[in-house]
Design a protein around this nucleic acid. Structure first.
Ligand code: FES
Ligand code: FES
Lengths: 147, 147
DNA sequence: TACTAAGTTGATTCTTTTTGTCAACATTAG
DNA sequence: CTAATGTTGACAAAAAGAATCAACTTAGTA
């Protein structure tokens, strides 16, 4: 039941972006440096977010990425879904046809409950919530990693 | 956020065992057949359950495995923990030292909440609950797969 | 216009985890 | 004794994860 680096780094990238959006377009390079993720990898993480219209990217010199919606309207469930795919512990929770036992499989019911419990958390948390928590903790994300 | 086959097959093995425990020792071969898992693989799934004292095994002819505790005392959280290890979405939820950012990482707080939500489900469900649900669904586990 | 700083895309590679299989062995019932 | 069973550890195939790289496109600016 581990989250992959896509989900972890991707959410952190969104948070970083939200924390710096008042500075205008944010180059991926800056996010990569602050979040300690390699730039080539971050490029792949940002792709699905751009494709989904969550993030807007601007090419060229002085380019960078920016949030399309305000952070308060970006639910973590949306971000995680884009980055990791469905959060369901087993695929047959989303599509019963994937398991030929699903009609009478009681463990599937439990995995489904787990999915709901997780969704509950991710649906009720937005990037804005993370921003506020971060500011309370001393906003190190904006202060550290200056050389 | 997927469960591996260890967790899925292992829980199903425990359920199968609970459903057949009145028949005495249950050979792994029977569980493997009913649950459609290869016998050699099932042997590895049962090992940690035996080591933890959840399941007792008896070698030799007419041997097999049996539950040590009544199904109502076996929480799914216990089984999944044994089979999959910690349910935490990221390891630093269990041990903050694993991430050097953990002191000010707000995403970690969210992953921690997710872990709690999942634990809530798995802590409040026992093998006995699964047995009862299975019987309500028509107990196919005890009726099917006879050749 | 050139040059440079970005983001885009797809191929490729390396590593780790998952998912098993197999064989040799130990134990017990009958 | 022997057949049925669980035990253990080595091994391996396949899939997924985690990047890396290079060629390309786009846009600002001198
Ligand atoms: S796990 Fe898919 S139906 Fe049981
Ligand atoms: S994910 Fe481990 S501290 Fe942020």
């Amino acid at each position: 039941m581990k989250l992959s680096t896509k989900g972890r780094y991707g959410v952190r990238a969104l948070l970083d972006l939200a924390l710096h959006q008042d500075e205008g377009l944010v180059p991926l390079k800056d996010i990569a440096r602050r979040q300690e993720v390699s730039l080539p990898y971050l490029e792949h993480l940002i792709t699905p977010l751009v494709a989904a219209g969550l993030v807007k990217s601007t090419r060229g010199a002085r380019g960078g990425v920016s949030l399309v919606k305000p952070p308060s309207e970006i639910k973590l469930s949306e971000a995680v879904q884009l980055l990791e795919g469905s959060i369901a512990p087993v695929d047959c929770v989303n599509d019963p046809k994937l398991c030929h036992r699903s009609a009478y499989c009681v463990t599937r019911d439990i995995w489904s409950e787990m999915k709901n419990a997780m969704s509950q958390v991710l649906d009720s948390t937005t990037i804005q919530d993370l921003v506020e928590r971060q500011r309370q903790k001393g906003q190190p994300e904006t202060e550290m990693y200056h050389i």
